[in-house]
Simulated assay, not measured.
Amino acid sequence: MEPVVVNREATRRRLTEKQADTVDKLTRAAMEVLSREGFAGLTVRMVAASAGVGTATAYTYFSSKEHLVAEMFWRRLAATPAPSDETVTDTTARAVAVLRQIALLVADEPELAGAVTSALLGTDPDVAHLRLRIGTEIRTRLVDALGANADPETVETLELLYAGALVRAGMGYASYTEIADRLEGAALRVLQD
């Protein structure tokens, strides 16, 4: 399998290689700070210090902690190839695999999972831009899984299912693994009708 190349362009501007390395340092440091402090305790200033860069430099790339966490999720999604099993011709199985993968993307990292839920619901314009990129990527994966003749209403219903499921997981109603199972069952009901 070919390695996935993550678009190293940040939300706010195109990056030189050195700038891209700084953004990578900041996102790695953010994960460390998030694991230690939680989303409530995370600050851009802490992340900058942990990454060994100035606070002003960090704010050059990220407008807020919500923007930083949303970027972390976007990078995780972009670096994760869509499930692809060319031997599976069943569009339902492919679409369910896409939804399950998205639901489990941060399942093993509860601090990140909760932070992503909070961050993506924010009003920061840079987060809004990332929400659009994330939503477009997920829609593309669902359409690819369902095939060229994918019904737009079915795709939208699946989008509503995963969005609601991830919010429920983020609110602590169930673990991400449990939510992935419930999402799979709900998607099967939609796709088999």
Rank of each mutant, 00 (worst) to 15 (best):
A70W: 04
S50W: 07
M171V: 11
G164K: 07
L34W: 10
E17G: 01
L142W: 04
G41A: 03
V143E: 15
E153I: 05
V155P: 01
W74G: 02
V5W: 03
A82L: 01
L15K: 02
A95N: 11
A103L: 04
M72D: 02
Y176P: 08
G38Y: 15
V23T: 01
D24M: 14
A30S: 06
H67K: 07
E184G: 04
D90P: 09
E66M: 00
S84T: 14
M1Q: 11
E2D: 13
E2F: 03
A128N: 01
A174K: 05
G38V: 12
S175V: 13
A20R: 12
M72Q: 05
T157N: 04
V23N: 02
R182Y: 13
D181K: 11
D151F: 11
V47P: 03
A49E: 11
L104R: 14
R139D: 14
S84K: 10
A78K: 00
L34H: 07
I138M: 06
E17H: 06
T60K: 09
T91F: 10
R75F: 08
P83W: 07
A95V: 07
M72Y: 08
L160M: 10
Q192T: 15
R189K: 13
A49G: 10
S50Y: 02
V6Q: 03
D124S: 14
R133V: 13
V127M: 04
G135L: 12
V127C: 12
A29G: 07
A95G: 03
S64W: 02
I134V: 15
L191M: 09
M171I: 14
T11D: 09
A148L: 13
A180H: 06
T157E: 13
G172R: 04
A145I: 02
L112P: 09
D21C: 02
H129G: 08
V47F: 02
D108L: 05
G164S: 04
G114M: 09
V33M: 08
A163I: 12
G170M: 11
T92E: 11
R94K: 15
N149F: 08
L121A: 15
R8G: 00
L112M: 11
D144H: 05
Q101G: 15
M72S: 07
D181P: 05
E2K: 06
P81H: 06
E9A: 14
